[in-house]
Write a protein that binds this DNA or RNA. Sequence first.
DNA 1: TTCGTTTGTATAGAACAATAGACAAATACG
DNA 2: CGTATTTGTCTATTGTTCTATACAAACGAA
Lengths: 260, 260
Amino acid sequence: MTNRKTGAVDLSGQGQDQAVTRKSGVALWRQIADQIRQAISAGTLGTDGKLPPELVLSERFGVNRHTLRSAIAALVQEGVLRAEQGRGTFVESRQKLSYPISARTRFSTGLRSQTRDRRSLLLAHAVEPATKRVADGLGLAEGAPVVRLETLSEADERPVSRATNWFDAERFPGYAEAYAETGSITLAFQRFGIGDYFRKSTLVSARHADAADLADLKLSAGAIVLVAIATNVDAEGVPIQYAETRFVADRVELSVSTDA
Amino acid sequence: MTNRKTGAVDLSGQGQDQAVTRKSGVALWRQIADQIRQAISAGTLGTDGKLPPELVLSERFGVNRHTLRSAIAALVQEGVLRAEQGRGTFVESRQKLSYPISARTRFSTGLRSQTRDRRSLLLAHAVEPATKRVADGLGLAEGAPVVRLETLSEADERPVSRATNWFDAERFPGYAEAYAETGSITLAFQRFGIGDYFRKSTLVSARHADAADLADLKLSAGAIVLVAIATNVDAEGVPIQYAETRFVADRVELSVSTDA
DNA sequence: TTCGTTTGTATAGAACAATAGACAAATACG
DNA sequence: CGTATTTGTCTATTGTTCTATACAAACGAA
């Protein structure tokens, strides 16, 4: 509410403790859970792998210990924290995955150093007429047949992204099968003679995860997803893939390098 | 909860009505408000400028009419909707602003066509020692003096972004004053002989708005911000600006063009 | 005017969120 | 061992959110 005015001079440094907002549609325990999760990945909490005691945290946030415990319970459920009676509460995983975005972006590459185990799952696929949005993205006529692929990516046994991919069904018949066998967009393209391809554009936005994404990404309600809408083109500049990927915002950041 | 397995075949098209999740820290009216806001900017609701009647919407979301009314009340408060007794509920503003990100990114340019009125406000400024993160971004030693600028950007009388900017205080003494007088990052740099500069990298993430941003950006709790952390360099490649910008996720999308 | 549609207001009860205080159980440490 | 620290469980109370039902007020059209 306190609106600062032009010409004000100082304010406390970044990264200080944030206040919680009462009676505003978001439960206190959820606000606190979000802040703790964020503080952990920002490195301002639990840097030694251990969280301060519940009593300390509850006083810092200005809430009852039970309320704080609800927040911790949610994070334990998510796998961010691990609580041990008599010992304390510990940080389970900390680092954000950084996905590079450039002309040569393939989401699967560049991550090998950041994670041990990385898997891609094909959830579903179908051939269907293109909506206007998809048709525009692929340079096809509205209603033209396209292959749709629903995929889920995991790193270290935990879901990180959920993607919907579209391909021209006439140019790439049986793409879904090729993907299912190779487990890779790049390898599947190779079966159709696409040796190299490029990221033409990426549109980044953010929103709350919808019900389907909540389930697939194993998130609790209110979680945020980073949405990247991308168009890939072949060597001639013809669009070959249109994709919408939803990343778990807590685990991922997108790195855009724009060296001219 | 219902986890689909590998090899499944079809599911309903994108953009259908989303379910609301009960007892999960986020009030139903807030979830619904978020979905309506999103559906409007996605063009799947109120395309004719008018929302369906409350009774229809409440049935579609599976909640009581009062709950839906709370959602609408929040959106009216935000300025997204306008309700008229006896006539209906109308959409007040609809389009998302698209911010280009490229080597030549200046957030103020490229928006002239999208909005009539655009303003930048200096909220606060200070000289202070650099944290490790800021020092790394600017290529300085930790603790070196830096100028910090807190700015707020508005388009069409409504806040769209909130930025924290850091500059080397030794190289740019009095940068804050230069900015205050010119009202522009680019013009302020010109006073220090920087004729041209480039976006070196942008890191994009998303999170819930914190209390300070909620106030400055006039959001209600639970709102999402897109966070862009950027490094700008001069013609020689030396970092001159490190900035963290929080965009209102509902009003903004970032457009990354990566033409190789 | 009369009627149907739509938003606005009121009231009461059920479900959930948050507070308060007390005590149990596991751990670490002297 | 005994004590302090810390997480886990229990009960009770209060306030907010959601539901259910009813009716009022404004608007548009027959």
